[in-house]
């Protein structure tokens, strides 16, 4: 059976100024239970691309379809019911409790003059439990570590009950363990809830991580105003593309692990290109 995509972009073009587009003619689609990993060097336009999906910027050309509907014609609220977002740099201003932050995810489901009711609070409670945040519930989220904050923001996104989840470099400030906790959480969400995930990342191994964990994943390499490659991690992340896109001399290592018939793969950087 062919699954229909939850979110897709067709010939998307965006520019802050006329002469200098950030990206041109980008196309992709993501189905339920699938991850799209957008990789690329810093400043290649990943965040801007995500911004257009979120409606923060408008495409100048092309269109975005969310569950078959043109996103351009959606209100912020309609869009938020279908797409949830986990930001890269969340600036904490006021010391809300974890509970209060997660509750905010109910906003698209409520009229502007009401706060969350008992039904909403029950959903919040469920997500907090599912994300194992119960012990932090009443704590001020300004005092949490980077990893905990990221989990809280993912919980807030889950409470939105949208089927598309967009994450912008969700592990960028995290240590070794917390990075894995976040990735593992995403794996669990995709497998259990069949949501579609679009994740910007600057770590090529994230794509292999999803593949190794048996999550359907595709990689888009973003460079020179567009996707230079898009496909499975094995197809896209090669010695050649690592050299071209990242200017890094790297090897792709694949090996069998346990009784798995499929090998696990990793990118291992060796040196900057031309310096060995």
């Amino acid at each position: 059976m062919v699954k229909s995509p939850l979110i897709s972009m067709h010939a998307g073009t965006f520019a802050y100024s006329q002469e200098n587009p950030v990206f041109e003619d980008i196309g992709f689609s993501v189905c339920p239970g699938e991850v799209l990993c957008i990789l690329g060097p810093n400043g290649c336009g990943k965040t801007t691309l995500l911004d257009t999906l979120l409606g923060y910027h408008r495409l100048q050309g092309g269109e975005i379809l969310v569950e078959g509907k043109n996103a351009d014609r959606m209100t912020a609220r309609e869009r938020a019911m279908k797409i949830a977002y986990v930001p890269q740099n969340h600036e904490k201003t006021f010391p809300y409790t974890v509970n209060q932050v997660v509750q905010m995810g109910r906003a698209p489901h409520l009229p502007f003059h009401t706060g969350p009711g008992t039904d909403d609070l029950r959903k919040v409670e469920e997500v907090i439990k599912k994300m194992k945040l119960s012990s932090l519930k009443e704590q001020e989220y300004t005092r949490l570590s980077g990893g905990e904050t990221q989990l809280v923001l993912i919980a807030r996104a889950l409470v939105q009950e949208s089927r598309v989840l967009i994450l912008d470099e969700p592990t960028s400030h995290l240590d070794f363990t917390n990075e894995l906790i976040i990735l593992e959480t995403i794996v669990r969400l995709v497998k259990e809830s069949h949501i579609a995930v679009i994740m910007a990342s600057h770590v090529p191994n994230h794509a292999f991580y999803f593949e190794n964990r048996r999550v359907p994943v595709r990689v888009a390499l973003m460079r020179n105003r567009g996707f230079s490659h898009i496909g499975t991690p094995g197809e896209v992340l090669t010695q050649k593309t690592m050299a071209e896109v990242y200017n890094v001399e790297a090897r792709i290592i694949s090996y069998a692990c346990g009784d798995d018939e499929r090998p696990l793969s990793h990118v291992v950087p060796l040196s900057l290109k031309g310096e060995s």
């Binding site: 911004d51 912020a76 938020a80 019911m81 905010m104 502007f112 003059h113 706060g115």
Partner: peptide
């Protein structure tokens, strides 16, 4: 008073409150 919960959301910043479904200009 009617908008007081929305102010919580707006205090998360513009990108995030938009992603949470808030009509920024109107609010």
């Amino acid at each position: 008073m009617l908008m007081r919960w929305r102010i919580n959301i707006l205090s998360m910043g513009e990108r995030e409150s938009q992603a949470l479904g808030v009509n920024l200009q109107l609010s």
